[in-house]
Write a protein that binds this DNA or RNA. Structure first.
Lengths: 192, 192
DNA sequence: GTCTATATGACGATAGAC
DNA sequence: GTCTATCGTCATATAGAC
């Protein structure tokens, strides 16, 4: 199944844009930068995308879907809150190390500054799914019955902040090095 | 002690810029926007500040210092890690509710996109001080002896993420409502 | 110090040939 | 579909009168 040339070029634009947006920021990246780094002309670029913003939106939706699917897989493989949440964080740490730009664009970027329509990523599908894991865990007696937002945040918030610190260059070692200790703190905080 | 007119105008520029930067983002705010909202001319504005970036930097330094001083006060008032860390988070939650723009600019903004020289806020003076609180707590046997970055993050990371959620509009209630529960989770995670 | 007017340049996006 | 050339706009910053 060969990818059509059209699809290949679309993906080239998206992956170039992802790299530039995360390295220099959306506003410091010009359409011309994207076009030059993708080895095509402005005209071609505008043939594939309506404008700069639509590149950013497509990219965002793709990554969001990708994370959502990963969470659905995790839901199927595990049957309790403890191992589901653990797997989610492990997956996010892993993705940050292996494919930093993706997590950086999804979590770290302030989307609303250039995509006014978008809501917070933390109110989007993958994180609603994660919240379901937590609420189910409370029903099952695994997690203390505190306000769900607080429980969710106690588990996920510190993990996401670890990712931020790593992206910021504050942590020298890979996230995998910190994973077990960090997870233990999170779980101690909420377990019943 | 009357403020000189000069000082008043400087502060007017800074507070206007803070409001605009946090509401619309640095790149969506033009110098002309700042000038119009401050009721002065471009020329005057450039008489007080070298350029747009220097407004952003001055603002950032001021807020950073302000938080650092608050932490020094907390250090004096409390003599153990538990109550120091608790007071820090309480202070940050409080400031977020009372003076949202300040915390938003300090923590939420991606400074490096427009101030290339700055390092991560989490590697700056106030957060080094906070880390001292944690390390001292480990020495005193209050906090488990895990990697200091992890301990620090378990306490502060989830709190900061709560602030992010509040700024993002994901949390409907004020942070004070969540404070006790959230703090309890954090402390359970790290206490010896 | 404060203003108005303007220089300068970059950027997003389009036109139109091939 | 792809390219080059270019348009219109707007932003930062400066010049120069008062």
């Amino acid at each position: 199944m060969d990818k059509s040339k059209k699809q290949k070029r679309q993906e080239a634009i998206l992956s170039t844009a992802l790299r530039l947006f995360t390295n220099m920021g959306y506003f410091n990246t010009s359409v011309s930068d994207i076009q030059l780094s993708s080895d095509m002309s402005v005209g071609t670029l505008y043939n594939y995308f309506q404008n700069k913003e639509s590149i950013a939106i497509t990219l965002y939706r793709n990554i969001e879907n990708c994370l959502y699917e990963a969470l659905c897989e995790i839901e199927k493989k595990h049957d309790n809150a403890h191992s589901r949440c653990r797997a989610v964080i492990n997956h996010m740490f892993d993705t940050t190390e292996r494919n930093s730009d993706v997590m950086q664009y999804l979590l770290y970027t302030k989307h609303r500054e250039f995509m006014p329509v978008e809501k917070s990523v933390f109110a989007s599908l993958p994180f609603l799914k994660m919240k379901d894991f937590v609420i189910q865990g409370q029903k099952d007696g695994e997690i203390r019955k505190i306000e769900p937002n607080v429980a969710m945040n106690a588990i996920l918030g510190s993990a996401i902040h670890m990712i931020f610190l790593r992206i910021d260059g504050v942590l020298d070692d890979s996230l995998q090095v910190y994973f077990e200790d960090s997870w233990e703190c999170s779980w101690r905080g909420v377990r019943a």
